[in-house]
């Protein structure tokens, strides 16, 4: 009933639309992994990023690249403030995880109310028009935004993973995520690693929110709903597994965007809650961060009886 061309078109557009969501999920999963916080205040970071870009471009008439810089700066600033004024203080006080939860939630709500006060509740966009020039590639409509978003997302993903694996501070972040006590033993500053994770996640959010805001309308409350997608992807993808979160986000995004084919559009937003529900019911085993396997394999192999089949 659909021609293959239309299917390819939908897939392509869905993939492009999904790119921002992938970055939101990456940022959420990163903070969860390194800082061990379900950071609902990520919505606050996203809101600040969007309205920073909005103020610079739509209100101030600055060019697009300045808007991106404003989004990055706003997001990074918010991330640092959260970590230094919020999480660090709560950590020092040994606040319960419930307390930290409430804190992140309340911060994201506070920021959305502040945004409502300053910018009103109406949907806004960074550029006056959401339409981007389209070129036809083999019968598929490819907009400049698609290319921009996919390109930027790919670069951001590669840069993030390279940073985590190659840079000293990135490796420190992974070490802290794996075992905070052991990391402290080897002289890795947990505070610095967590701050770095927040800043990195902030920058990813800034980029993603800028991309999102050049293509879709944003309200002060949008970020909380966008964040739910990231949470669902992180849970299904396996907590502590950044790659898993990214891949799951791609799949979920494709399914959600392509769902126009199967279900009425007003229920499309509902799919997200369905995903979340599925994630909780079917993929609940994520709370305990998985143990890194490699370093211990040898120990285990040495201890195992030779005749014992693997997996016991």
């Amino acid at each position: 009933m659909f021609s293959p061309l239309i299917l390819v078109q939908i897939l392509w557009t869905s993939l492009a639309t999904t790119s921002c969501f992938v970055l939101f999920a990456l940022a959420f999963a990163l903070v969860l992994k390194v800082n061990r916080v379900f950071n609902f205040a990520q919505a606050a970071i996203m809101t600040v990023a969007f309205y920073a870009a909005f103020t610079a471009v739509a209100r101030g008439g600055a060019p697009g690249w300045a808007g991106l810089l404003a989004a990055l700066a706003g997001a990074a600033f918010m991330a640092v403030a959260l970590q230094v004024l919020g999480f660090r203080a709560l950590q020092r006080r040994r606040a319960s995880s419930m307390f930290v939860f409430i804190f992140t939630l309340i911060v994201s709500e506070l920021i959305s109310y502040v945004a409502m006060l300053l910018f009103g509740t109406w949907p806004a966009t960074i550029f006056p028009s959401l339409f981007w020039p389209v070129t036809m590639v083999g019968g598929i409509a490819v907009s400049q935004w698609d290319m921009l978003a996919l390109g930027a997302t790919a670069v951001a993903l590669i840069a993030t993973f390279a940073f985590l694996h190659l840079s000293r501070i990135g490796q420190a972040m992974t070490a802290v995520a794996d075992n905070p006590d052991l990391a402290a033993f080897y002289g890795i500053d947990r505070n610095r690693a967590q701050l770095a994770a927040m800043v990195l996640a902030g920058l990813i959010n800034g980029l993603a929110m800028f991309l999102y805001g050049t293509r879709a309308q944003v309200q002060p409350t949008s970020a909380i709903e966008l964040l739910l997608f990231a949470i669902a992807a992180t849970i299904i993808g396996g907590i502590g597994n950044l790659g898993g979160a990214v891949v799951t986000a791609v799949v979920l995004g494709l399914v959600q965007n392509a769902s126009v084919l199967f279900i009425p559009s007003e229920w499309q937003g509902f799919l997200l809650y369905f995903f979340l529900f599925l994630a909780i019911v079917l993929f609940p085993r994520g709370v305990h961060l998985p143990v890194r396997k490699r370093p211990f394999r040898t120990v285990a192999a040495a201890a195992r009886r030779p005749e014992e089949p693997a997996g016991g």
């Binding site: 998985p290 143990v291 890194r292 396997k293 490699r294 211990f296 394999r297 120990v299 285990a300 201890a303 195992r304 009886r305 014992e308 016991g312």
Partner: peptide
């Protein structure tokens, strides 16, 4: 009784 966490064997056919 057997259990492993990741690669660590904590119980091996006890």
């Amino acid at each position: 009784l057997s259990k492993r966490f990741g690669g660590i064997v904590v119980a091996d056919a006890i």
